[in-house]
Amino acid sequence: MYFVCDLDTRMSDSEIWEHAKRHQLIILTKDTDFLVKSLRDDIGPKVIHFKLGNLSLSELHKYFSEFWSLLVKEIRSAKIILAYRDHIEIIK
Rank of each mutant, 00 (worst) to 15 (best):
M1E: 14
Y2C: 14
F3E: 14
V4Y: 10
C5G: 15
C5Y: 07
C5P: 04
D6V: 10
L7N: 07
L7W: 14
D8M: 11
T9M: 05
T9F: 07
R10S: 05
R10F: 06
M11F: 02
S12W: 04
D13H: 11
S14F: 14
E15L: 11
I16F: 06
W17Y: 11
E18A: 12
R22Q: 10
R22F: 04
R22N: 08
Q24R: 14
I27R: 15
L28N: 15
K30F: 11
D31S: 01
T32M: 01
T32P: 00
D33T: 02
D33S: 04
F34G: 12
F34L: 04
V36I: 11
K37H: 06
R40H: 03
R40V: 03
R40K: 08
D41L: 06
D42C: 07
I43P: 02
I43S: 02
G44M: 00
K46T: 07
K46R: 10
K46D: 08
V47F: 13
I48R: 14
H49E: 01
H49T: 03
H49G: 02
H49I: 10
L52M: 09
L52W: 08
L52N: 11
N54D: 06
L57Q: 03
L57N: 02
L57P: 00
L60H: 02
Y63Q: 13
Y63C: 08
S65H: 07
E66K: 15
E66F: 08
F67E: 04
F67V: 09
W68Y: 10
W68H: 07
S69V: 03
L70P: 06
L70D: 08
L70Q: 10
V72L: 06
K73G: 01
I75Q: 12
I75M: 15
R76P: 00
R76W: 08
S77G: 05
K79W: 01
I80A: 13
I81E: 03
I81Q: 02
A83L: 08
A83Y: 05
Y84R: 14
Y84D: 07
R85I: 00
D86A: 09
H87N: 15
H87D: 13
H87P: 07
I88H: 15
I88S: 12
I90W: 01
I91L: 05
